[in-house]
Amino acid sequence: MPTMRDLKRRIKSIRNTQQITRAMKMVAAAKLRKIQYRVASGRPYGDKLAEVIGHLVASTDPGEQPLAAVREVRKVGYVLITADRGLAGGYNANLIRLAQERLAQEERPAALITIGRKGRDYFRRRQVEILEEYLNLGDAPDPVLARQIARRLMQLFLDGVLDEVYLIYSRFYSAIRQVPRVDKLLPITPPPGERPEAHEYIYEPGQKEVLGALLPRYCEIQVYRALLEAKASEHGARMTAMDHATENAAEMIEKLTLSFNRARQAAITREIVEVVAGAEALQ
């Protein structure tokens, strides 16, 4: 049975931990507020751009645009976006589990491009091929870095290193709900059921020139959007995890305080009994 000194030491330790988790929750909440607006404001643009690009690709010959060229798949690339740090509940574990399932189900040769330290470290220990890695993205994604990553992915696709590229990231819905998902990035294909004759466009200066400028931009926007969603999900998951940790610490402190008070009361009772027994012995 722990002594009063042990209980007091544990209460102090847990209270210090509670202060840390409460501070981490407040920091994560502040970071989430900053990036949540960017996520919400960017979604309409990204959705409309994806719709327009899908219509344009459906109405053109895929062979005219290298980024939309569908070819025999000899190697698949999965871009896994995780966090650089932990203490975010099941955020990283859920993404890694989804990536593992996709790799296990993949019958074709596959490789990873990791964004974030957690995913990189996990799959490096398991000897999975990692073509590229990007670390230390900070609290908010940099559009310049997103453009660099997107251009590198497009180059791997155009060079024939990868024949398909997928994004694995977590879509942000709220601080308590983040859903891991897989989106196809390359080649750029029209949405299911899209009919080429359903949309007619007038191109200036020409169809090839317009699509040649739009498709790379579309890939950059999709990568940047995935990074924003992932970072907002990370902050939301960390805020929720630290909130639960703070509440659990409060419950542990309450239980330990009750045990401490019982131990102190038992000690006081024992001393009173000893005093009474000593007084009776002197009579």
Rank of each mutant, 00 (worst) to 15 (best):
R152E: 15
K231M: 04
I81V: 08
P109L: 12
G63D: 15
A267F: 00
S233P: 06
S41Y: 14
G206D: 15
T257R: 08
F172R: 00
M239H: 03
A279T: 12
H244G: 08
V223W: 08
R147I: 04
T269V: 11
R217S: 12
K34L: 14
R5W: 07
M252T: 06
E209A: 07
M252S: 13
Y173V: 06
K48M: 15
A99P: 01
L228H: 01
G138I: 00
V57E: 02
V223N: 01
A249Y: 03
A198T: 00
D183I: 01
S41K: 13
A279V: 13
S59P: 07
A250C: 04
H199D: 07
L49R: 04
E72G: 14
L156I: 12
Q36E: 15
T17E: 15
L103Q: 03
G63N: 13
L211H: 02
G46V: 14
Y45K: 05
Y201P: 02
Q127W: 09
A245T: 09
K8T: 14
K118L: 07
L87E: 14
A50G: 04
M26Y: 05
V161G: 04
P190F: 08
P143K: 05
T21M: 08
Y37S: 08
P187Q: 01
T21F: 11
A93G: 14
R126G: 01
V276K: 14
Y78T: 01
G119N: 07
V79N: 05
K8W: 07
A230C: 10
V27D: 13
M239S: 14
R43I: 09
G206F: 01
V70N: 11
A99V: 12
L227N: 02
A250K: 14
L137R: 06
E133K: 14
L256G: 01
E234I: 02
P190A: 06
E51A: 15
K34H: 10
H199A: 10
Q283Y: 06
Q155I: 03
K208R: 13
L137T: 00
G89F: 00
L256R: 00
L227H: 07
K75E: 11
E274H: 12
R195T: 05
L256K: 02
A40H: 09
R33C: 02
E220Y: 10
V70P: 05
T269F: 08
A226S: 07
V57P: 03
V275T: 11
Y203L: 02
A281M: 11
